[in-house]
Design a protein around this nucleic acid. Structure first.
Length: 418
RNA sequence: GUGGGCGUGGCUCAGUUGGUUAGAGCACCUGGUUGUGACCCAGGAGGUCGGGGGUUCAAGUCCCCUCGCUCACCCCA
């Protein structure tokens, strides 16, 4: 019986991992430009942390978490809660009132896997803690847009506001009334949602439900003065920076902690997993988790599997082919022995060197060199050992240089010349 | 948790109305004269046809069960 990876858990093998490295490299570079700093947290946390932040009644907490019940610990299903815990625990808000942080790593949710959705998945998570200025919201979305643009991905930004504890309850009551009046016309899921989370009815995909909610009251028409003002500033900021966006008054969030600004970066190229990144503001959350009072925050997470899938759909290859500077082909035991030593010395000079130790024929080694994408091949056989000079073949031009001294120094000089 | 589709060598797949030793392409290995990479040619290795049971003289091909993968619902990044 062969042992295989668990359902929903995937290996990222050579040939595939390069794209992940590329994604991460570009992202880190962009984060750096906006002056975000990295933070890394453990994968396991107290279960309580997620119950309190994400919300007891959410699907994530109710049925999707990997929890060690006896130890009361859970593998993180998302990054924000852990990041805030660390932020509070280390008193980062004391050192610097506004913190801009990012983290990259695996998250775990026990769901049925499908395209762009795994049980262990990876997110890049960005958070700005300690500011409620609308420019922060704008900058965050602008950064996301810039990153996707530089990756060559076509995604659109959808924006909404969820209001705050001042204005949401009133709106919620109004919506509930609207939904109740049409209760019989809704799908069975929405009937359930109307009691568990009425806002969710707004983004039901069933056509008949969509029809019913067309004239539903919009939160955007019922924001309190402050939220309205804040939302206007966010929008004018996006316009100032030339970031295209679309208002979506039906967009809701699955995690309880969101308020005010919420947004999603959407693609049409991933089947049902449209959101490649999503997030929003969570102004009361830091306090809820034991941090300083009146401490606002906003952040978003990007699904790396989804981004990699999109990158794979691009025709142009963004990843460099497999290549080495030099392949050493040793013929016979002595040739291989000398090559073995030279390879080590040349590697110490910061060149990449490949050779095999299987005692293959020269022809076979040349084939290996070709497949490896070697720029040069150094041939060392009996004749070369005798003269002390090797043959250096340029794999591009097919030229052989006959008189290369078998020393790391003269070989590296030749490599530098080309 | 609920549905649909699919499970043949590393990968992509053929396998006819069930019938002799299960095939192809790609990839891999070794050769094509004595020490050289494309292509080509020859040869080779590699599969208990997901697993179990049943029908039959005979099953990769039919039936049942089971496991796995996948897409979708739900939910979400």
């Amino acid at each position: 019986m062969k042992i295989k990876a668990l359902k929903g858990f995937k290996d990222i093998v050579p040939g595939e991992v390069e794209l992940w490295q590329y994604l991460e490299r570009v992202a880190r570079e962009v984060f750096d430009r906006f002056h975000f700093r990295e933070i890394r947290m453990p994968i396991l946390e107290e279960t309580e942390l997620f119950a309190r932040s994400i919300g007891e009644a959410t699907d994530i907490v109710e049925k999707e978490m990997y929890t060690f019940v006896d130890k009361k610990i859970t593998m993180r299903p998302e990054a924000t809660a852990s990041l805030l815990r660390a932020y509070i625990e280390h008193g980062l808000y004391v050192q610097k009132p506004v913190q801009k942080l990012f983290t990259i790593g695996p998250m775990f949710r026990h769901e049925r896997p499908q395209k762009g959705r795994l049980r262990q998945f990876h997110q890049m998570d960005i958070e700005v803690l300690g500011s409620e200025n609308a420019r922060v919201d704008t900058e965050l979305m602008a950064m996301g847009a810039m990153l996707f643009d530089e990756l060559g991905l076509t995604v659109s930004l959808e924006l909404n506001s969820l209001g705050c504890p001042e204005c949401r309850p009133g709106y919620r009551a109004m919506l509930l009334e609207y939904i109740e009046a049409r209760h019989d016309l809704l799908c069975s899921d929405c009937k359930r949602r109307s009691t568990t989370n009425p806002l969710r009815v707004l983004d039901c995909k069933v056509p008949s439900c969509r029809e019913q909610i067309l004239d539903a009251p919009s939160i955007l028409d019922h924001l309190c003065g402050q939220c309205e003002d804040h939302f206007q500033q966010v929008q004018s900021g996006l316009e100032q920076l030339g970031v295209k966006y679309q208002l979506n008054k039906f967009m809701v969030r699955g995690l309880d902690y969101y308020c005010r600004t919420t947004f999603e970066f959407i693609t049409t190229d991933l089947g049902s997993q449209a959101a490649v990144a999503a997030g929003g503001r969570y102004d009361g959350l830091i306090e809820t988790l034991g941090g300083p009072k009146n401490s606002p925050g906003i952040g978003f997470a990007m699904g790396m599997e989804r981004l990699v899938l999109l990158l794979q759909q691009l025709d142009q290859s963004v990843v460099e082919a497999d290549t080495v500077d030099l392949y050493i082909a040793g013929i016979g035991d002595q040739g291989a022995r000398v090559g073995f030593g030279l390879a080590h010395e040349i590697r110490a000079e910061k060149f990449s060197v490949a050779m095999d130790h299987e005692g293959r024929s020269l022809k076979s080694q040349m084939k290996q060199a070709h497949k490896t994408g070697a720029r040069f091949v150094l041939i060392i056989g009996d004749a070369e050992l005798e003269s002390g000079k090797g043959i250096l073949r340029n794999m591009g031009t097919e030229e052989d240089q006959q008189d290369v001294l078998l020393s790391a120094q003269s070989i590296t000089e030749c490599l530098l010349k080309k």
